[in-house]
Design a protein around this nucleic acid. Structure first.
Lengths: 265, 265
DNA sequence: AATCGTGTTTCATATTATGAAATAATTGTA
DNA sequence: TACAATTATTTCATAATATGAAACACGATT
């Protein structure tokens, strides 16, 4: 059995002797905002797992509360334990702990929402968000992912990730609006400019009417581990405000970087 | 090998053939607000796993981003992928989707924070929170857990969980304040009263100066799947306001229940 | 230099995960 | 109502995969 289908299909060879865990996580990662509920067969198919194997792994995940079933449809969903662990993960994120007070003052100064984001593959993950009017809470979309090439933060992170050589461009640059940069060549030029200026701007690139300005956060090893941004409607974040806002974003990013042990030079 | 140490130690026999997954999840569950970072040896010890096994499983989790390492200390932490999954889990929670608008109006009407919580073992998990001043965001402690017997929501859920026979009392009733109910007999009487009245109040039981009022949310199978609450400082939530607030909390809970398919009678 | 405490790698072993096939449950269709 | 057709479970022989003892490497602290 086990017709050695394709062990080398997955790029992350990781560590031998953990097939079951890797597969279980693959199942968990299949759940998304777009498809939060799966039937067994389609989920097994989507993860390229044997139906029985998927069932067994899901049963284990369900027993631990990471996955729960819709009593009506019988479909699988992420469970409450996942919510709990995500909360713990977020609260224990050292980057977030350092950044939060800085993000709060930034958001209040500019009176627009500020975010902290990291690069995960070809997407940016919103690690924290402080909305200007509600400085104590965190926005709904913490934990959301967005296509990196269509966001200011993502462009910053991609620009500095590939600083040494060629930037690791996502294979497919999906178009979000007519302003989204989908040409790899133009995007490479954009990255060059971002590295020179030290910040990125995205106007209508993710969503029509949405403007964002982002700057990189460096750790003590001088790698861009995150990016912060100010984002809001173009009606408020007008062109004449950009120089001022850009300066504030860059200043905040430098402050966070310094608190992470980064030293310019 | 595998000196069959104690396969029956864990209560959840779950499904055979998923040892590795169950162990990996045990590792993940070890991370908490109190101890967000672990060394390999202590984590292996805490989860009763062989050091090598723990290392291998953690490597797999790390490769998938569920766990990350502190580059300085080498310690293990929950990773960013965990944040992402938690966010997805929360946003896809059907209970939360139904409750949120109701919680928002409740919070605004009373002008205090409202929460949605579910019972996980002997603790309540905060699934959602709407703070009165910041109605759009969600509070920091979504995903946090609190001892059920010391909270209004927890008491409600325990009272209705054991409705049929004896209530499933947590084995150790930890004392949070001098008002915390730690006597099982008194707690049982409290549950009886809660079932009769249809709501629970907790004054200074979790934290001195903190008052909360909770009511149960029923699904279409008439089981109390969650509880909602209003909570705030005793200085604002005074005794004379309780009747009014209690009514609003109960009304909101009934509305959510009805939207879940519950029909009274 | 030496000892202790970490984390990491190796490797023989058989326990444990595996998937084909059979069965049960559910749904849609004649 | 019976009959397909689809999905979810269970069973079970098989060996691939997870396992843990032991050896190793590395960095502290003495």
């Amino acid at each position: 059995m086990l017709h050695l289908q394709d062990a080398e299909l997955h790029t992350n060879e990781a560590y031998p002797g953990t097939q079951a865990v890797a597969r279980a996580i693959a199942l968990l990662k299949a759940f998304s905002d777009a498809q939060p509920e799966w039937g067994l067969r389609e989920l097994a198919q989507a993860t390229a797992l044997n139906k029985t194997t998927a069932f067994r792994l899901l049963s284990a995940l369900e027993a631990e509360g990471l996955v729960m079933r819709n009593p009506l449809s019988g479909g699988y969903r992420l469970g409450v334990e996942m919510v709990a662990m995500g909360g713990t993960a977020m609260r224990s994120n050292p980057l977030r702990a350092v950044s939060r007070p800085n993000l709060e003052t930034l958001a209040q100064t500019v009176d627009e929402a500020s975010t902290l984001e990291v690069l995960v593959g070809s997407q940016v993950l919103i690690v924290d968000e402080v909305s200007s009017r509600h400085p104590m809470g965190m926005s709904q979309d913490v934990g959301s992912r967005l296509p990196a090439h269509a966001t200011a933060t993502g462009k910053v992170l991609l620009a500095y990730a590939g600083e040494g050589g060629s930037a690791p461009l996502p294979s497919s640059l999906v178009r979000m609006t007519e302003k989204t940069i989908v040409d790899p060549v133009i995007l490479a030029l954009e990255f060059e400019q971002i590295r020179q200026r030290g910040y990125a701007v995205a106007v209508d690139e993710l969503e029509l009417g949405f403007v964002a300005i982002a700057a990189p956060v460096f750790d003590r090893e001088r790698v861009a581990v995150a990016a912060i941004s100010i984002g809001g409607p173009g009606l408020r974040l007008t062109a004449d405000r950009l120089p001022e806002v850009t300066g504030l974003v860059q200043m905040t990013a430098r402050q966070i970087s310094r608190q992470l042990g980064y030293w310019p030079g």
